[in-house]
Design a protein around this nucleic acid. Structure first.
Length: 200
DNA sequence: TGGTACCAATAAAGCAGATG
DNA sequence: CATCTGCTTTATTGGTACCA
């Protein structure tokens, strides 16, 4: 047992377990100290979120506190304000509460993500222009047409669910600005979008 | 000059209901 | 019944004024 590193040789058992797991790039142990005379612990020996794992491999300078907070994020447990701000500032997490997730590809992606935020207003104009051109050419478009037109051009800083919603929001925005309208005011799947007369 | 408190604008996500 | 629209809500961003 000693050789297998399964016996706590030096004191500081609990903290040591955290560090051990960190060094193995595994999720943090879940301690349960609710019963006064017992210590229950769950050690997870598999990857929960590969972004978390990759982050630990890439960023060796994370403090134990940071790793623990990140662990909460991957386990979808709530984190406090302080932890949230800290992780967000360091671009270690993304998303909006309560739907946070561990950032993907830390080093490279922080740039892309920043790029995305900086350019998104500009990009939006670009997408609107593309959609207008499409509608001018073909007269109408279904959601599938629009997805095909834009989906692969949207920044990879967004996941596919976010990309979908981005297009939905974009359509709504254009509708509200009176650039386009849904033929017969249709909702749901069958909606067909057209350019408003003033825009043609 | 740099930090920050506040505010308006808006991006993103949630939700309900329509629709095929 | 999953998808998509339309509307609502929430969070973030970016500007600006203010103070040390």
């Amino acid at each position: 047992m000693l050789n297998l590193n399964m016996i706590d040789t030096l004191g500081g058992g609990i903290k040591k377990m955290f560090i051990l797991q960190r060094n193995r790039h595994f999720p943090m142990p879940d301690y349960d100290l609710k019963e006064p005379d017992k210590v229950k612990v769950r050690i997870i020996g598999k990857v929960i979120d590969e972004n978390y794992t990759r982050m630990l491999i890439q960023k060796t300078d994370l403090s134990l506190e940071e790793v623990i907070a990140l662990d909460k994020v991957q386990k979808r447990k709530p984190i406090n304000e302080e932890e949230f701000k800290h992780l967000k500032r360091k671009d270690l997490i993304e998303g909006r509460r309560p739907n946070l997730f561990v950032s993907a590809e830390v080093a490279a992606a922080t740039d892309t993500k920043a790029d995305y935020i900086r350019k998104r207003a500009f990009d939006k104009q670009h997408y609107i222009k593309m959609m207008k051109e499409y509608l001018e050419k073909f007269g109408y478009a279904t959601r599938q047409d629009i997805d095909k037109l834009l989906l692969d051009k949207i920044s990879d800083a967004l996941n596919s669910r976010q990309k979908n919603k981005f297009i939905s929001n974009l359509l709504q925005e254009m509708r509200r600005q009176g650039i386009i309208y849904s033929v017969g005011g249709k909702r749901g799947r069958g909606a067909v979008w057209k350019l408003s007369k003033e825009e043609t």
